[in-house]
Every structure is written in structure tokens, then in C-alpha cells.
């Protein structure tokens, strides 16, 4: 149960369970963003869930084709912002009013107006920090080891190549059937990816 949940969360980060020296999944290359888009739709229609598409740039409409909802990063941003605001409010009130009250030209020890700039700055700062850290966390990054890094054709994914990986941990995965299914969807080449373990290959 818990194991399943963890595996699902990892799958949402594009990290799939595999054993050392076992198959990680099938990597299929597609010729262009259009073909990738239609193939991703096809893979989902075909009942696969543990799969991902890889492209050098974000492809418009791909989230929909893969049946994914809105990213959760926004909630983390909101949380960071609220924290930053609360921290700035509390810090300025507590230091000015409670811990170190000092009379300057008879001004109140704490008031909202002169506190606004720092409240704003810290709100933005913690919101931005939560966004970046949250984005990396939701993506499972940094990820020093990835079985895909051992594929030579996959090196071109950050240049001009477009791939779909169907993980061998998918319930429907079957090396042969999945392979021919991907060919039907228009893959130009298919490669089996092996998990080399986190040790050097």
C-alpha cells in the first residue's frame, strides 16, 4: 500500500522502479513534435500509465494529450508567500514593539505603513524560493543517476530528438507487445533501456 503510493509519487516525477541489470523500459524515438504528441495520446489510450515523453522544449498541449492536470507548484508558492509575509510581520512587530522598543521622533514602535516594504520583499522572496525548491522537489531533481543517461540516442533529447519511455513497471508492459505497439504509433526506433544500478557502468 505505502510502497504503491511511493511508486506512484515517483512515477509522477518520471522516476520508475526497476531492479539493477533489469529492464527499465522501452524508449521509442519519434521524428517530430507532432508525431510525439499523437503518439503520447495513443499510449494513454492504449491503457499505459507509467510512461513519459521527452523533448528539447515544452510541447504545447502535451499535458492534455498525456491526461495530466494542473501542476501543483502554485500551492507551494502560496505557502511560501504566506510564510514570508507572516515572518516579516512578526519580525518587525516583535523586534520593534517587544524586544527593542526605541523612540524615534515619537513614532509608534510598530505600525503597518513603514513595515509594508519589508513585508512585500519577504513575501516575494519566500514565494520565489518555495516555487524553485518546490518545482525541483516535484520533479525529483536533482537526480544524478537516470538509466536513460546510458542510452546514446537519448543524448539528443536536449537537442532535437523526441522520445517516449514506457516503464517496465507499468502493469500493461510486455516487452514485445509494447514494442510493436510503439512501432504502430510511428516510432522510428525502439531501444530497451537497462538499469545499470547507481554504481558506475
Amino acid at each position: 500500500m505505502l510502497k504503491q503510493l511511493i511508486a506512484d509519487i515517483k512515477a509522477s516525477m518520471s522516476i520508475y522502479d526497476s531492479e539493477k541489470d533489469e529492464s527499465y523500459g522501452l524508449l521509442a524515438e519519434f521524428p517530430d513534435p507532432g508525431a510525439l504528441y499523437h503518439a503520447a495520446h495513443g499510449v494513454r489510450e492504449g491503457g499505459y500509465r507509467r510512461y513519459d515523453t521527452y523533448s528539447p522544449f515544452p510541447i504545447h498541449g502535451m499535458d492534455k494529450a498525456m491526461g495530466m492536470g494542473n501542476s501543483k507548484v502554485g500551492f507551494l508558492t502560496l505557502g511560501g508567500g504566506v510564510f514570508g509575509f507572516a515572518l516579516a510581520y512578526w519580525m518587525q512587530w516583535w523586534t520593534g514593539q517587544v524586544d527593542y522598543p526605541i523612540n524615534i521622533s515619537g513614532k509608534p514602535f510598530f505600525s503597518i505603513e513603514p513595515s509594508i516594504p519589508i513585508m512585500f520583499e519577504l513575501t516575494v522572496f519566500f514565494a520565489a524560493l518555495a516555487t524553485v525548491v518546490g518545482m525541483l522537489a516535484l520533479n525529483g531533481l536533482p537526480r544524478p543517476y537516470n538509466p536513460l543517461f546510458y542510452s546514446n540516442s537519448f543524448k539528443r533529447v536536449t537537442d532535437d530528438a523526441f522520445f517516449i519511455l514506457i516503464s517496465s513497471s507499468d502493469r500493461k508492459f510486455d516487452a514485445e507487445k509494447t514494442g510493436s505497439f510503439l512501432t504502430e504509433l510511428g516510432a522510428t526506433s525502439i531501444e530497451e533501456i537497462h538499469d545499470h544500478g547507481s554504481a558506475d557502468a
Binding site: S12, M13, S14, A40, D52, T53, Y54, S55, P56, F57, P58, I59, M62, D63, M66, M68, N70, S71, K72, V73, G74, T77, P117, F120, E121, V124, A127, A128, T131, V132, G134, M135, L136, L138, N139, L141, P142, R143, P144, Y145, N146, L148, F154, V157, T158
Partner: peptide, 30 residues
Amino acid sequence: MGWTGANRHWRNYEKAYLLLAALATPLVLS
């Protein structure tokens, strides 16, 4: 950081980029 261009990553990445832009806009004016 092990970036692969996975679409599951791009999805969060694009959202984060949009949010950072939305945060940086009032920041730069401030």
C-alpha cells in the same frame, strides 16, 4: 541536476517559470 526534458518535468517547470515571472514583475517595480 539530471534534467531530461521529461514532460512531467516541463509541466512543473513551466508553471514555476510563470509564477517566478509573476513574482518578479512586482518585485522589479518595487
